[in-house]
């Protein structure tokens, strides 16, 4: 068996908070060090095989976008390693990141922000491959036109500016720009979230076609459970910086195991006739600056016991390639002490 294309190994990312003068004084008086950190990603391990599309799902602040940026080499992890084909995607720490590869390309959420408004679409697409010598100057024009046609646009659109395109067309241009670098891995960060539903279907179909034709490998980051189900082979559910459940899409959607995954599925409105009886998760998402001790989900979890308040659950095997980070799956939540 060959090694996976992407190996994320116990990656953590903390963003230090700048302490204000008042914080520093207060900390000095209390005899502790000033400044906390946002625990954006904690101990995440994940692999992506060649030709596989892995979904990363979670609510805001769960660390899914930070993970995507680490994989793309935009952020360096605080701890852990990210290997593409056995080689690191970036070196350096914190402020001094050196991106080492062009083989990971990212597609962002907002195609109005991700395209340079003053650059012709053709230049936007060809800038990367020309700079890195992926295409020769002689064939740049043909390549660019071919890419535009591949994403369902007309080749002569290369001479137009972004403002002449709709949101869906711009997202196609962003996809063409990423493909121009002939990447091994695509990172899509909420790539269809800002599109209208009829346009979203067009872009998802394009993604499925490209996947089939080019054998794309991708990390598909999204908050939308139905979109993820449609395009992903495996899905990681994240909560407050950690992966809480990882399984094939089929198994996960048939039977979510982690109480958070279950609750998430129960709160999503589904298309159907008749009123839905919402069973929302109680409480709010805690702050990643000061995550709860033990299992981060325990304050909102209907099954939480004493063990959940003190011990962080590890991802353990739940059969058929599924892993779940929950004490229910690993010896129980413990008994409440008799009052």
């Amino acid at each position: 068996m060959t090694a996976p294309l992407l190996e994320i190994d116990t990656v953590s990312k903390r963003f230090p908070l700048k302490a204000t003068l008042a914080d520093k004084v207060a900390a000095r008086l209390a005899g502790r060090s000033a400044g906390g950190a946002v625990h954006a990603v904690t101990d995440v391990s994940l692999t992506v095989e060649r030709g596989e599309v892995v979904g990363v799902v979670g609510e805001s602040g769960c660390g899914k976008s930070t993970l995507g940026r680490i994989v793309s080499g935009i952020y360096a992890p605080t701890e852990g390693t990210v290997l593409l084909d056995g080689k690191p995607v970036a070196t350096g720490r914190e402020d001094h990141v050196n991106k080492l590869t062009t083989r990971v390309q990212m597609i962002h959420q907002d195609p109005f922000a991700s395209l340079n408004p003053r650059m012709k679409v053709g230049e936007t697409i060809s800038e990367g491959p020309r700079t890195h010598g992926i295409v020769s100057a002689a064939e740049v024009g043909d390549k660019t036109r071919a890419l535009l046609e591949q994403v369902g646009l007309r080749g002569d659109y290369a001479d137009r500016l972004p403002h002449q395109f709709s949101g869906g067309q711009r997202q196609r241009i962003a996809i063409a720009r990423a493909l121009a670098m002939q990447p091994d891995l695509l990172v899509l960060d909420e790539a269809v979230a800002s599109l209208d539903v009829s346009i979203q279907a067009q872009v998802l179909n394009l993604f499925l076609d490209l996947r089939r034709d080019l054998g794309l490998t991708a990390l598909f980051i999204s908050h939308d459970l139905s979109v993820v189900r449609h395009v992903c082979d495996r899905v990681a559910i994240m909560y407050l910086g950690r992966v809480v459940e990882l399984a094939s899409a089929e198994r996960l959607y048939a039977e979510p195991k982690h109480p958070y995954t279950q609750a998430l599925f129960a709160s999503v409105p589904t298309l159907g006739t008749g009123r839905q009886d919402f069973r929302p998760i109680k409480g709010e998402i805690p702050s990643p600056i000061d995550p709860p001790p033990g299992c981060a989900f325990h304050p909102r979890c209907p099954f939480a016991g004493p063990r959940c308040r003190v011990e962080i659950p590890r991802l353990t095997d739940a059969g058929a390639g599924r892993t779940v980070a929950c004490h229910l799956n690993d010896g129980g939540v413990g008994q409440e002490a008799a009052a």
């Binding site: 539903v197 279907a201 139905s226 449609h230």
Partner: peptide
């Protein structure tokens, strides 16, 4: 309604409305 994913077999083409708004 047809273009909403989740009601179709995963990985299949979604029915789409051609053109743009």
């Amino acid at each position: 309604l047809d273009s909403v994913p989740g009601q179709h077999a995963p990985g299949t083409h979604l029915p789409q409305i051609p053109g743009s708004t």
